[in-house]
Amino acid sequence: MWRSLASNALTFLVVAVFVLAGVMLWAQNEYVDKGPLTQAICVEVPRGTTMFKVSKTLEAQGAVSNGSIFRLGADYTNKSQALKAGSYLVAPGASMSEITDVITRGGASTCGTEVVFRIGVTRASVQVREINPASGRYEEKASFNPAEGEAPEVYKAVLNRSDTRYRIALAEGVTSWQITNALKSIDILEGEAEQPAEGALAPDSYEFVPGDSRESVLTRMKEAQELILARAWENRADGLPYATPEEALIMASIVEKETGGDGERGLVASVFVNRLDKGMRLQTDPTVIYGITKGEGTLGRGLRQSELRKATPFNTYVIPALPPTPIANPGRASIEAALNPESTDFIFFVAKTLDPRDGHNFAVTLDEHNRNVAAYRALERANQ
């Protein structure tokens, strides 16, 4: 009898071991096999949440077939305690293993809402964008000028969401006054902001979180510009008419304000370098305008003859050199163009059409330049 019981128990144990092994193998395959999602979704991981709650969310969204297996797999790979708050894009067919990696890897959110504070040359704006999981692209939900009234409800609603990302985007050619003034209007930043020197800030995109100080944001912009200028100065062409990196930065700011075309920056820089080499005046309107506005907004009208004749430190129709400071914050491309300009004999340039995006006609001689100017004036008259 005892032998029979022992034999039956052993048989049962063997069967149980095989069943358990089979279940484990099945669960392992379920964890790494293709998931049930047929289209991408966004999964939010709130701060302080647990893997249990996330697994329930994933089950409800149809991203995993079995929340228990998902949790067991996360435990087995030591990732249960490694959740990273944010909002993440989960691709169609993502396995439980891949989803676990996405929500525990960390880094910037790949899904959810983004608020972009754009600081442009002519205006500042706030854009609220939300990613479309199906396309993986951000779609605009609202856009407004913070200086022109109350923010829309869409903006107010996303401020309290854990998956909202915040970014400041600086356009090339904005002034330090424009940047500092715009930062003061961003109500989720804190502290005072002292206006940096002109040209000291790098136009780029900067992520931040609510509660960051305005000075910390400005510091990041300054450090970025210092690095760009230092590298460009180290790799500069020979024989340039600049004694210091600061003079190169002044030239870069002029190039930035004279052209918005990436393909023309080196040509425009060559014109001004050639003029300096020949002892000629730069004769560029943007420097005169900066002398009038001090970078505090746009002029909003044409220059008067009296302003072009008046002797000021920024009137390059009068002074035979660079102005004393940059006239804007130039981007990387303009800094590199100023320090590695095209090799040309051009001395003059004028716009090809009334649309600045169409670029310029360049000339070596005054006669050729006068013909280009005459063609441009004819376009002006035809437009009027």
Rank of each mutant, 00 (worst) to 15 (best):
S125R: 06
V64I: 15
P92G: 13
G86F: 03
S95Q: 10
S65E: 13
K56F: 05
G106S: 11
G112R: 04
C111G: 15
T57R: 12
F117P: 04
M51T: 02
Q61L: 12
Y88D: 03
G67F: 06
A91K: 15
K56E: 13
T57P: 06
E130V: 15
C111H: 07
I119T: 04
N66K: 03
E59S: 14
G73H: 02
I131N: 04
I131A: 10
E114V: 12
F117V: 08
K53L: 14
S97L: 12
D75I: 12
L58I: 10
E98G: 00
A94W: 00
G86H: 01
T100H: 01
L72N: 00
V128Y: 03
G120T: 07
N78V: 02
G107W: 01
Y76W: 14
M51R: 01
V128W: 03
S55D: 07
G112H: 05
C111S: 14
K53M: 12
G107Y: 02
Q81F: 06
K84P: 07
F52S: 10
G93L: 03
N66E: 06
A108E: 14
A94P: 03
S87N: 13
G93H: 04
V90Y: 02
G62L: 08
N66I: 04
L72I: 12
E59D: 09
V64L: 09
A124Y: 00
N78S: 15
T110Q: 07
R105Q: 12
F52G: 03
S87G: 15
A74E: 04
G107R: 01
A124T: 09
E114G: 04
V116M: 08
A74P: 01
R71K: 14
G112Y: 08
K84D: 07
T110R: 01
E114M: 14
K53T: 14
V128D: 01
Q81V: 08
S87D: 07
E114Y: 04
